[in-house]
Computed example of a mutant assay.
Amino acid sequence: MRKAIFACVSLLSMAIPVLAGPTPVAPNGIALYPDYMSWRVVAPSYREDKGHIRVITGNETAVAALRAGVKPLPDGSVLAKVAWKAVKHPSFPVATEAGEFVQVEFMVKDAKKYKETGGWGFARFVGKDLKPYGKDASFVNECFGCHTPVAGNDYLFTRMAGTP
């Protein structure tokens, strides 16, 4: 199973936009983490309302905490959620695969800096040009509002996907 997940992420990483200039920065100051696809896979997900296939990756701090069941995650934890449009495989229509890249979102843990949003900083970079999302720093209210139903789980929808 781990080999299958690694192969999937390896193939998907080829479809990730490559930075062709300065690192994009969200309106709240969080810069895109260019190595997010080299982080460990936390879990795949599918968002039905958007039709997005997603892969959640985490840096070493986040993955170690998630594996150990530590909540809240420690400062320095970073999670990336990478999204592609879901498309039917042209030669195997019962299979769905990643199509066009949509966006990458980040959650950055710093309990003091992001106290107002549950200890998490949020950032989103959209499209092949990785355009920062939001007109100003208030965009985080949209992100945080979506995560409030899972406040009891450190504002995380994601958990480590089980493997043998």
Score class of each variant (00 low, 15 high):
R2L: 05
A7P: 00
C8G: 07
V9F: 01
L12E: 06
M14T: 05
M14L: 11
A15K: 11
P24H: 10
V25I: 15
P27C: 11
G29K: 08
Y33A: 13
Y33D: 13
D35G: 14
D35T: 14
M37Y: 11
R40N: 13
R40Q: 13
V42G: 00
P44K: 02
Y46G: 05
Y46K: 02
E48W: 11
H52I: 05
I53S: 00
G58L: 06
T61E: 12
T61Y: 06
R67A: 13
R67V: 02
R67Q: 15
K71W: 08
P72Q: 12
V78W: 05
K81P: 03
V82H: 02
K85C: 09
A86W: 07
K88A: 15
H89D: 15
P90K: 15
T96A: 05
E97P: 03
G99V: 02
V102E: 06
F106N: 04
M107T: 12
K109R: 15
K109Q: 14
D110G: 12
K112M: 11
Y114E: 06
G118F: 08
G118I: 07
W120G: 09
F125A: 02
V126D: 10
G127F: 09
G127M: 03
D129V: 03
D136C: 02
A137L: 02
C143V: 07
G145I: 05
T148R: 14
P149W: 06
P149Q: 06
V150P: 01
A151F: 01
A151Q: 15
G152W: 10
N153F: 02
Y155F: 15
P164A: 02
